[in-house]
């Protein structure tokens, strides 16, 4: 087996097992407290997925990243909807980079 094939198989196993394990306990009921802990994971995960990574979304242009995210923030606050937020912030960033004149 080639070195890369071994690597791919190994990586797929160690990625899959943590994703699978919790589903084996789907029938088990946990304490109220633990259930509540699990409910808090979506917002805390999102918080940590956004901060600080999002500010480095556009390499070396934190300000343009922030302006792009600002569009998503404002649009989703007032209107809601993922697709427009995503496409709009891509467009805003595109214009930002274009104006800055770099990276073309």
């Amino acid at each position: 087996m080639s070195k890369f094939l071994l690597l791919i198989l190994g990586m797929s196993i160690v990625t899959y097992i943590p994703r699978l394990l919790p589903f084996l306990f789907i029938d088990k009921s946990f304490s109220k407290k633990f259930e509540r802990f699990l409910l808090y994971i979506p917002p805390t995960a999102l918080g940590a997925l956004i901060i600080p990574g999002a500010f480095e979304a556009i390499p070396n242009m934190p300000l343009i990243s922030i302006i792009g995210l600002g569009f998503a923030l404002l649009y989703s606050w007032f209107r809601g909807g993922l697709i427009v937020s995503v496409l709009g912030s891509i467009l805003v960033v595109f214009i930002g980079i274009y104006i800055k004149g770099g990276l073309i």
Binding site: P43, L46, G47, L49, I50, G53, A54, A57, S65, G68, L69, F71, A72, L73, Y75, S76, W77, G80, G81, L82, S85, V86, G88, S89, I90
Partner: peptide, 10 residues
């Protein structure tokens, strides 16, 4: 990232 923000904000 824009998607994460747009999920979280509402």
């Amino acid at each position: 990232y824009a998607m994460f923000v747009a999920i979280l904000v509402p």
